[in-house]
Design a protein around this nucleic acid. Sequence first.
DNA 1: TATTGATCATGC
DNA 2: GCATGATCAATA
Length: 238
Amino acid sequence: MYAAQVPKGEKTSWMTEPTSETELLERANKLAGLALGTLAARLSIPVPEDLKRQKGWVGMLLEKALGAVAASRAEPDFLQLGIELKSLPVDHRGRPVESTFVCSIALPEIADIEWEESRAWKKLRRVLWVPVQGKKEIAPADRVIGAPLLWSPGESERMVLRSDWLQLSAMIAEGRTAEITGHLGEALQVRPKAARGSSRRLAFDEDGAIYDEQPKGFYLRPSFTRALLEKHFVLPHE
DNA sequence: TATTGATCATGC
DNA sequence: GCATGATCAATA
């Protein structure tokens, strides 16, 4: 049915990994202006009424539409290209309405890792941001996809990210994870990341004693993603 | 109302 | 259980 409306060759291209940045960007540009319901119909993917029980639905949909390989791994979505795909929920002014999850924190190993070798940096060194209307008032099917941004942090952004990461990972390495809250970090913060409150993983305190604590992850604050969008797009003030 | 802490689905 | 994809919802 919908297949007849798809130009020849395009349907299969959605299923394969893009081989260049240009190809990825071309695909992403074609999605701009589309409602999620329209895209989902093309891919024969059911659309949920809301995202309460399918919080990652938008991200998964974009992955399929752009040809990312669906697999769990602590590497960028487009491995060959070294590019991470991130959907970014925005309000009517184009401002992010949520923080952006970056990566989980491997407590035992973070002590001996350099920033340049960190999971966080590997994910953030090159990101394809795809803004999507993200206000709850708009049903998922009606949310419109925005213009994509292929981004790498600039010098000042790198400094801020590195500084936050250094501070937070040092605290973890010193066994001071109990002192870490979401208040810390200018751009990068540490927050819980788990399937349930009872999830536990190994950690150690200042005396080196091992104990269980809630799994945590790095998140990008909305102020940071807002600034990077404003740097590349003209967004309304107010 | 902005932000932090809690939570949901899926795959291996 | 832990990685991926995130948003929900209580609270400051």
